[in-house]
């Protein structure tokens, strides 16, 4: 695709400039929500939604191609499955202590970032699954509506 055509895709210059400034912050905020899931309100699901929103934001402002270049469908789908498998393996690793879903890592001091055993790891897995899943749902809707127009 030529440079010219790519510039025309998406919304106006104002939106593109604002997006360029904010999209990194949104992504960072999503990561913050995920990593502090066990300490503050939030966790894997909301954090994953915010991370997916940053990619959706990119797609709305710059058009489909730009966002898919950063994260295409196949890779997103792999992330999604990997997130689910990771969550399931963390749960199954509890069998080393005798129980499914056992929190087998040391809990640490409360309110420290590195505490609460397997819960932050679970949050990361959920974030992968939810973020990639939500992004894929959005991409699918976009692709289907494009097919309708033709």
């Amino acid at each position: 695709m030529s440079k010219m055509k790519q510039d025309q895709a998406g919304m106006t210059l104002i939106v593109k400039t604002i997006t360029r400034l904010t999209v990194g912050l949104i992504l960072l905020y999503g990561i913050y929500i995920v990593l502090h899931g066990h300490l503050t309100p939030g966790g894997g699901f909301p954090g994953g939604v915010i991370i997916a929103l940053s990619f959706i934001h990119l797609m709305l402002a710059f058009g489909k191609e730009t966002a898919l270049k950063k994260l295409d469908q196949i890779r997103a789908s792999l992330f999604e499955s990997a997130g689910a498998i990771m969550f399931l393996s963390i749960a199954s690793l509890g069998f080393v202590g005798g129980y499914f879903f056992l929190n087998f890592i040391g809990k640490g001091r409360p309110f420290n970032l590195f505490s609460a055993g397997t819960i932050p790891l679970c949050n990361i897995a959920i974030c992968l699954k939810v973020g990639a899943g939500l992004f894929l749902i959005f991409v699918t809707l976009v692709v289907l509506s494009k097919m309708e127009e033709r």
């Binding site: 499955s81 689910a84 498998i85 399931l88």
Partner: peptide
């Protein structure tokens, strides 16, 4: 565990 893990491995 068995069906869930198989489902996700197949999707991977």
């Amino acid at each position: 565990i068995i069906p869930l893990s198989v489902a996700f491995i197949i999707s991977l």
